[in-house]
Structure formats: C-alpha cells, structure tokens
Design a protein around this nucleic acid. Structure first.
Lengths: 351, 351
DNA sequence: CTTCAAATCTGTAACGATACAGTTGCGATG
DNA sequence: CATCGCAACTGTATCGTTACAGATTTGAAG
C-alpha cells in the first residue's frame, strides 16, 4: 500500500445509507475530496468532480442532515410559527400547501412551531433562537411594533412576516392590500346606493387593522358615505359574539345598509345576525367580504367577495425567507397582493 | 492537577449555547457522567444527579438535536405526509393544530412532507425511509391495500394512519366511523319521511368508501329505503362537477328526496345543484352531511350535520404514533371516533 | 492484610460532514 | 538543478452526544 492511499476508507458504513465514505471508497478518493467535489470547490479537478457526481447520483447519495447541521449549524429548516387559536376557517391549510410547494425544490423542510396566543408569542421565537432550530422563520399576525420582529432582527435570524410592521425596520414581508380592499369595498357598496356602512374589523393590535380602517375611511371620504360604528366585536371574536352584537346593531335606529367584513367566517356571523334582525341580504343590505375560500360564493352569492389567496401568500412567504437566508436585500423581498372582486360562480356546465 | 481530573473540560463552548461540556465544567464532572446523570442512569449517584439536574435547569440546557440525531439516529421528528391537493375546505389546518397540541409536551417536532397525489404517494415515504428523516409518520387518505402501510411495516418505521386498511396488518390508526355516519344518516332521513336516498361518496379507492357504502346499505335495509344511484361524481371531484351532475339527477325522473353528503364542501355543491334544478332544501329534499367545520350549520341550518372533529383526530394520531414509537402494541393504538348529530346553532345570547 | 465486588465515575471512539492546514507532483523559472 | 508556484488532493480536528470499556474508591469478606 503506497503512502498516497494509506488512509483511504477500508470499510463501508454499516447502515445501507451511502455517506461520503461510501463514495470515497468507490472512487478511491479521500473523504475530503469527495466533499469538496460535491460542492464544486475550485481546487478539485474537473474530471474528478464529474466522477464523484456520477457515483453520488448512481448510489443516491444524500447528505446526512445531522452531520451537516452539527458541523455547520445549518439546519435546512424553515419554521412556520402559528398560534394554536388560528382562524376558524383554517387559513393554515392552504398556507402550508403554498409554502411546501416552494420548499419542495430546495433542501428545506417545513417545521410547524405552535404557540398559544393566550400566552407568550415570543416564546417560540426564543426557542428557535436559543436552540438554533431553524434557518428561517415565517410569522403571521403581525403587529405595528412587533417584538418578534425586533428580536429576530437583533439576533440576525432571517424571517418573513405575513403582514407589515411600522417600526422603521426594513424586513421581508408579504401582505394582502387591506387598505385597498376596504377602499374598493366602499366604492362597490356606494355604487349600489349604500351610504351607511359598517366595518367588521381586525383586532386593533394587528397592523392590518389600521390598513383596513384607513382604506375604509378614505373610501368614505372619496365616495361620500358614512361610517356606522361597530367596535363591539372584531374578526377574532367568536361567531356567536359577532352575531349577537350585530343583531343588536341591525335592530337599532342606526342600522347600516352596507357591510364590509374583514374575514370570511366573520361574514357568516354577520349574515346570521342580520337575519335574526329580520333583515334581508341584498335587499335591506349589501355586503362585501374578504374570503380565503369559496364557500361564501357558493352559499351566499349575494355577498360580493374579494379573494385572498392564502396559497399564493404561502408561496411568496417561502420565497422571501429563502431569499433572506441567501442574503438578498430585504427591500427586494416585499410583496403586496392586490385584491380583486371574484366573479360569481358560473352557472351551467363548466369544468 | 491530579490524575482524577486531568481530562476535565478546561474551556467552554464558543457559542452562547450550553452543552454537556458546559455542565461538566460547572459541576466539575466528566461529560459522560453528566450525560448519564441527565438520563437518570443507575450507575450515577443520587446526589450527583441532583446537582447536574439543577445546573442544567439553571443554565437552560437543551440537548443539541443534531448531536443526538447523529449519534443515535433519533430524529425527534414526526412527519405529516400530505397531498398537495388536500381537501378544499382545508382539513389540514385543524389537524396540524391537534397534532402540535400533543407534540408540545414532547421533544418531537412536526415536519410537513407533501407530495403530489397525481404522482407517487410512495415517494415521500421512500424519502423518509431512505434519509431517516423521521421517527414516526402520519399518513392519510388510506386505501384498503395501501402500499405505504406495507412499506412502512416492512421497514419497521412507526406510523399511524388516518383511516383503516384491510390487508391483515395490525397497525395504529384513527378513524371516523363512516359506516355509522351513513347508517345514522339514513335513519334520520327515513324518520323525516324520506325514502329515495342518494349518497355523495368518497372516491372508491379509499378505504372509507366501502365503510360509508356499507353503512348506507345497512341503513337502507334496516329502515326500508331505496338508493338512487349517483356514481358520476365523488367528494374528490370539483364542486362544479358535483353540482352539474347533481342538477341533472335532480331534474330527472329519478330525483331523490334525501341526500347524504360524505363531505362538507361536497354538500355546498349538492345544494347548488339542487337549487339550480328549482328544488328546495327542507321541502323537496332533506340532507345530512358530514362537516369538519361550522359554516354549513350557520349558513344552511336546514342541513343536518354530523361533526367530524379533525382537531381531535390530530390529537389521537399524534398520541398513536408516539405510542408506536415507544413500543406500545399497535392494537392498543387504534381508535374510532363516533359521529353525532350537531345541535343547531343557538339562537339568542350565549358565549 | 489481601482480594473482590459494588458503586461511581471517566476517557475514547464514533456518528457524518466540513474548515483548515497541510502534502504531493510537476512544470516553469532563475 | 535547486527552487518556486500551482493544481490537485488529503489528514486531522471538530461540532454535541452516547455506547462501551475501563478506572477508582470503598468496604466487606476471607
């Protein structure tokens, strides 16, 4: 055995799974060389790289994640941080699908990290930071001064928010244009002759509360309509609470004739309240609602809906975190999706 | 330096994160001792264990997952395998919530592993097996002879199915009792005087297809009703397809007077088809539907719904995989959730 | 006094990958 | 014909943890 090959691997790994050692053994190269060849390092010969790549592919080599993670700290994990009390109609589902669609083409895995909103929204972030559990984080329910954004920025962990902040930190985000949603909703209702408008708003601590309100108020000014106050409930309340509060409003002198619902499930409760007050949608009242799914269009075609495509949001968010991890500047990783009214469900035969 | 302490760690790990080395340094013990103390090994003194535990807790020690995984192969990961084309109304969302509720009290993380049903449902399973990506797997859309179950069993990777199989393999599962659902649905419809019943069924290749059909047919026999054939579509088809096919049926001589819908979103389409045929729900027709969410009850209270609690299913599935990983016998990890009719939404004030 | 066993504790090697600091061979340079 | 630089390759140490095979101490038995 000449000196050049004296420390070459003599044995193969026990388990069936190929490692760098397997490839080293098969090619007659050193483990280091194989590692560097697979990374396309400049100090490895072109032909050698080719050989290594070929063998790696043949035997279906996949780097051991634990090995990489232990040595380099790179987890290849994106963490989706969710509250357990997530929206009734399940915004999570299409979101997860959207994210995984993007991650499928990458080495990243999606880990769902839940927290109880009732407790501490920072807890999961701290956990991820302290344990180095992920290379990137996706958070939602963003607040104007969001401590999670502050913490993640300070500690330099790439992230993206579903929703914007107002704290002078430039960071990746994806958001639905709620300002424009409310504005267009007002326009639509006024066009139908409605002038006494009510808004079922997001909870005030979330950023998109002010966006939606701003759009609402701008619309009222531009199209000359009036706001009917309805701050007793918001889209985070239970359907029963929303319904009951709205019934009271609809029975009062102050009853609105146009309704804007900031959420699809909220719309259900509003409709129920309205009907309990013996009013009829489409006659006494018109309604515009945001809707992440199709059921309103099918069951209450009278409601005019603007579709919020959560699946696309998931895709955008995933692309943005990865971009952030790859070092792209945050300002290039921001996107806003524009609301559009949905056409009614087609009657008649169509696939 | 006496011989007893000569190889004690002299330096602390660079990063802020505490490791076994940190604790060893602080307690003056060896790394091995600390490791074994934290595992409550029998050859470590009681007082030593106490000290180690105390220090570990104080400094917030958490084992490095990559280290454990590399050494032991234990990933502490549960993989939820989903099709990207998952149910329209998003069954995924409450399921993920249910699973994470259980995992929160364990060292396990939830990784979502998607696949395109259009392609190969085995692909993600192979990936997990080949790369050792998880300690346990949760699969859904189970088939009577499910190749995924065969493969996982053969390779000895713990798993649980959402739905049962019929291949003579005893394995953990959680299922909704679809046989009973259909049976009780028939009973209810017959009690309302309906005798010409139609079933919107699951796709035939899934196991619960035959369960639901069996319950349906047993109900027809026991309560003396007749089946109206409707196999043109199933709950996997698009809402438009279902609606159009059902409209045709409702306009025909053969129009049913009772409808059983195997899915909540399917019910929406059936209602639309029925209305397009100028029939009225509650008058010409009654309907019983499975429903994983609340919207039907709110928007179409005429529909009698049986609630399928996906969140609870998620919890059961999580408990079952973990049980399987922990070596509990599969036959003790099987559960069936019993359908119950939901009460109507309460009218009047209630939280 | 040995000798031995039990009770505690410990070092080494290994899991798979990579950063880093070499080593080797070879043609060009002075 | 030394010397140098360069291209191509390699060994060692390390990340944090645990399995395994010792090592040390203590006290009781012979």
């Amino acid at each position: 055995m000449d000196s050049k090959t004296k420390n070459r691997p003599q044995t193969l790994p026990d388990g069936g799974r190929p490692t760098l050692k397997t490839i080293a053994f098969m090619t007659g190269l050193g483990i280091t060389t194989v590692s560097r060849a697979l990374k396309d390092a400049p100090d490895i010969g072109a032909e050698t790289k080719e050989r290594v790549r070929l063998v790696a592919k043949q035997i279906g080599y996949q780097p051991n994640r634990a090995g990489v993670r232990l040595r380099t700290g790179k987890t290849n994990v994106i963490s989706l941080v969710l509250t357990l009390e997530e929206e009734i109609m399940g915004i999570t589902s299409p979101m997860v699908v959207g994210i995984t669609e993007i991650l499928a083409g990458t080495p990243y895995h999606l880990v769902v990290t839940p927290y109880s909103a009732v407790k501490d929204a920072l807890a999961p972030i701290r956990y991820i930071l302290d344990t180095g559990a992920a290379d990137g984080v996706i958070i939602s329910r963003t607040e104007p001064h969001d401590p999670r954004v502050a913490l993640l920025t300070e500690r330099g962990l790439p992230f993206v928010t579903h929703g914007r902040t107002e704290m002078g930190i430039v960071h990746p985000y994806h958001d639905f244009d709620n300002e424009r949603f409310a504005y267009e909703a007002v326009r639509k209702l006024v066009a139908r002759g409605r002038r006494r408008l009510v808004l079922l708003e997001p909870p005030p601590h979330l950023t998109f509360y002010s966006h939606m309100r701003a759009g609402f108020e701008r619309g009222l000014r531009d199209f000359q309509a009036d706001a009917i106050g309805f701050h007793q409930t918001n889209i985070d309340h239970s359907l029963v609470e929303i319904r009951d509060a709205f019934e009271v409003l609809m029975r009062s002198e102050d009853a609105p004739d146009g309704i804007i619902s900031g959420s699809g499930s909220g719309a259900i409760a509003l409709i129920a309240g309205l009907e309990m007050a013996k009013k009829k949608l489409g006659e006494d009242c018109d309604m515009v609602s945001k809707s992440p799914s199709d059921f309103l269009r099918w069951l209450r075609p009278e409601v005019m809906t603007m579709y919020e495509d959560i699946r696309v949001a998931g895709r955008e968010l995933a692309k943005a975190v990865i971009g952030h991890i790859d070092g792209q500047p945050p300002e290039t990783l921001q996107s806003l999706s524009q609301p559009e009214f949905q056409p009614p469900i087609t009657r008649g035969l169509r696939a």
